[in-house]
């Protein structure tokens, strides 16, 4: 947990995804997280955007544990967009979780957020994720449509989820198709008398 600086092991396939996705956006470049020197830029970007308060250690929890699931959109030397995620077991599934996504106001409507999400979706798929989830305020139409357009479904509604008392949607993207269930064939599928 101490230092995150060894970025050499960053898989070549992920960097090729970044290249692929960002060909047409010439002025904006997308880079993986590489050093804590980038943290202040990331924090100031998110603090302006999200309603929930986080301390520097909250960022570190995600970034230090899953450094290869944090990406930044850069304009010259400035971080103007960031996505922070984690990936771990949830019941039987390997579940990716998008913890934070932010794009600087002046840079919105340019699909930068969408590109960042696409990058992590691909990165998580490479790491064999079964599903990707996140929560968003049910009133946040911008976020809802961004994720909807990528194929996320609204899986659950969470009543009064946020500190401010607003409901949330749990959004989910399925990375894998049908999972065969063994029990199904073993069970009596007929409805017996109640057919």
């Amino acid at each position: 947990m101490d230092v995150v600086k060894n970025k050499q092991n960053f898989s070549t396939s992920t960097s090729s995804i970044i290249k692929q996705l960002t060909n047409d956006n010439t002025d904006i470049t997308y880079v993986p997280y590489s050093s804590e020197l980038q943290l202040p830029g990331i924090m100031s970007l998110i603090e302006n955007d999200l309603s929930e308060p986080y301390s520097i250690y909250t960022y570190r929890y995600f970034i230090n544990n899953w450094p290869n699931l944090c990406f930044m959109a850069m304009d010259q030397g400035t971080c103007i967009g960031v996505i922070i995620c984690k990936l771990d077991r949830h019941r039987d599934a390997l579940r990716g979780y998008i913890a934070m996504l932010a794009v600087k106001k002046e840079y919105r409507k340019r699909k930068i957020g969408t590109t960042l999400v696409k990058i992590v979706i691909n990165a998580m798929k490479l790491q064999n994720a079964d599903e990707i989830v996140l929560e968003t305020e049910y009133t946040n139409l911008g976020a809802l449509s961004l994720y909807h357009n990528l194929g996320f479904i609204r899986d659950k509604r969470l009543y009064r989820y946020y500190l401010n008392g607003v409901d949330a949607f749990r959004l989910k993207l399925f990375c894998k198709g049908e999972i065969p269930i063994v029990e199904e064939s073993q069970r009596v599928t007929g409805e017996k008398a109640n057919g």
Binding site: N149, L150, G151, I153, G177, E178
Partner: peptide, 18 residues
């Protein structure tokens, strides 16, 4: 929708009945 696959979605939407 880019990462959407209707058959996968079908499977998950009704998974609790499976």
């Amino acid at each position: 929708l880019e990462f959407d696959d209707e058959s996968t979605r079908f499977w998950h939407r009704f998974r609790m009945y499976r």
